[in-house]
Write a protein that binds this DNA or RNA. Sequence first.
DNA 1: GTTTTGACGTAGC
DNA 2: CGCTACGCCAAAA
Length: 112
Amino acid sequence: MVNPRKEKFFSDVYEVVKQIPNGRVTSYGAIAAFLGTKGSSRMVGYAMNASHGTGVPAHRVVNRLGLLTGKHHFPTPNAMEELLAAEGVVVEENQVKNFDKLFWDPMVELGI
DNA sequence: GTTTTGACGTAGC
DNA sequence: CGCTACGCCAAAA
């Protein structure tokens, strides 16, 4: 059977991120691992960079430390915090509070 | 086809 | 607490 993972990488990243419930967050590495390309965690961020206009809630994706590392890529550095705050996610010092609790693992939620 | 880059992750100092 | 370095992978130039 074929493995159209490579050509689906960007698409899969968008699909997964879109499925993130409101008020939840996940990490780049988690998505990468879910796609089967654990080492391509950087690619997830790369995909997010191209996600502008794709309807992907990139603000729900942070690094594994819960840090809003990608906030600088938003129209305004404040947009990411605002969006998260609007969903009930508390952000303090560029870091998501209760990240461990708010963490949305596609491996589990989507049932890998 | 080679080189550079990148919103990561981990380790070391 | 901050920076450097390496690894790992994929896309763009």
